[in-house]
Design a protein around this nucleic acid. Structure first.
Lengths: 113, 113
DNA sequence: TCGATATATCGGTAATTAACGATATATGAT
DNA sequence: ATCATATATCGTTAATTACCGATATATCGA
């Protein structure tokens, strides 16, 4: 049985809006929407490891035009807001969109904003 | 003939997210969703003046818990982002939600984010 | 065990935002 | 013309955010 997604609080929504208030972070979210086309074939997306759509930090870093540390921090901001989720596999940390939160944000806009 | 609402650019979307990244400004937008219940009956919403749903700055100020100047600035931020529209009538400046922009933001979330 | 690679964290400076009180400006009433 | 009310703007300080380079940590391969 799949648990229901409960509605976002205003405080949580503000956190998400803050995370989205930056061109680079918004760009990361865009790229992660279609990893196949946005990242090179040799990107370390290991299908067997059950984290489909995940992209490692260094691949994201190459695309952002910001430093490695900034990329890492931005990913952590996106993570804390719930917009992405993460999994460590070996020496890599993969990030992918959390579509559940994104759906909740859509609902917030439609019904609560 | 009604002109089409064109899609938001990423830059414009970031501006809107910035405007929404603050509890007070988000609260103003919420209040303006239902002016009848959120503002006193004697609020200066003059129907003949053709700006239905508009609420004047001082009425909004009373509800926000911030100073008059902060309220005014926050309204100006919301205005610049396009989330509200404004009309001066006599000595009052009325603000109301710009549902067109809000709809565009919903579309942005659904199709571009 | 020793490097090499991947990522996170720390410590910093510059820029932006939050929020205020004081003041300027615009309008309306007397 | 003068005063009162409504709103905007200015000038300020504190807090937060945008980044960075340097360094710490974790994992892999030889």
């Amino acid at each position: 049985m799949k648990h229901e997604s409960h509605a976002l609080s205003d405080e949580k929504a503000v956190d998400i809006f803050k995370a989205l208030s930056n061109q680079t972070r918004l760009g990361i979210l865009h790229m992660l929407k279609d990893p196949e086309t946005n990242f090179s074939a040799q990107a370390h997306v290991i299908k067997e490891e059950d984290f489909e759509g995940g992209v490692c930090v260094s691949d994201i870093h190459k695309k952002t035009g910001t430093s490695q540390s900034t990329t890492s921090q931005y990913l952590s901001i996106l993570l804390q807001s719930g917009l992405v989720e993460t999994k460590r596999i070996g020496q890599w940390t993969y990030y992918r969109r959390n579509e559940e939160t994104i759906k909740q944000l859509e609902q917030y806009l439609q019904f609560k904003l």
